[in-house]
Amino acid sequence: MTWWRTHGRTRALVTRYVLLLVVLAISVGPLLWQFFSSLKGPQDALYGSSATFFPANPTFAAYQTVFEQVPMGMYIRNSLIMCLLTVFSQVVFPTLAGYMLSRQGWRGRGVFYWVLIISMMFPFESIMVSLYTQITDLGLDDSFIGVWLPGAIAAVNVLITRAAFSAVPNEVEDAAMLDGAGEVRRFWKIYLPAARGAMVVVVINSFIAAWDDFLWPFIVLRSEELYTLSLGLSRLASSSLSYDPRVTMAGSIIAIVPILVLFVALQRYFFKGVESGAVK
């Protein structure tokens, strides 16, 4: 006990890990259930009192079935194309708009702001039909562009980047102007580095949005050659004649992996926001 009392630092660390483990159990417990269910063999019951948490006869058969039943390579390729398109447009254009929105002293700024807010507040279902009609009128149905365009620039991302740009003190801008730096140069050299954290958040958010989106691509896309992963995986649950929940769960595990990999790669950049930029 004396050790516990005297080693404050160790105590704090132990407490921290205990808390981390508690939250870990809550957040990934249900996902682990899903993962272990996907590894169960046909003899292992999925539900009920005879069902166990860990599979008694673990097998990757369900994963094999996923790859056999649907062209996963094609779906993943299509999803990646959609994600690249979306991430590109969501990073570039909202950043430009967010920067200008953070600058004061131009006419129309307030109206633009309201347009952003309004566009965020409508449930998708109530504008969906109208959107689809627009897309068919433009001749963009059954194409990647048709899926991508309406969601190419999201208002929320303009607001997120705008918030990061606003955080740069005006004195920095004034100093740069005295040095003769033009608008584009100031944007590139001062503001963009300051908003890196926010931009990483935008990358992750828009990647996930494109990766997970289901209803809208489903309405726009007809040709299976264009199906994204989330559409393709819905096939696993949709067979009207045979259905194995293990395969569905395996499919949804496969769909999570790329996003988690992206997250692992990007998570340390969340901390390189304002403080690492030109503010210092």
């Binding site: 046909p42 019951a45 999925l46 539900y47 009192s49 005879s50 009207s240 004649l241 259905y243 194995d244």
Partner: peptide
């Protein structure tokens, strides 16, 4: 299907093709 295969309910579906699901999820 889930309740029936788990042995939680006595009656299952009224549709014959449902039995295939039961076979897949809990053979017992």
């Amino acid at each position: 299907t889930q309740l029936y295969s788990a042995g939680d309910v006595v009656w299952g579906s009224t549709n014959a093709s449902f039995l295939r699901y039961v076979k897949d999820t809990n053979e017992a």
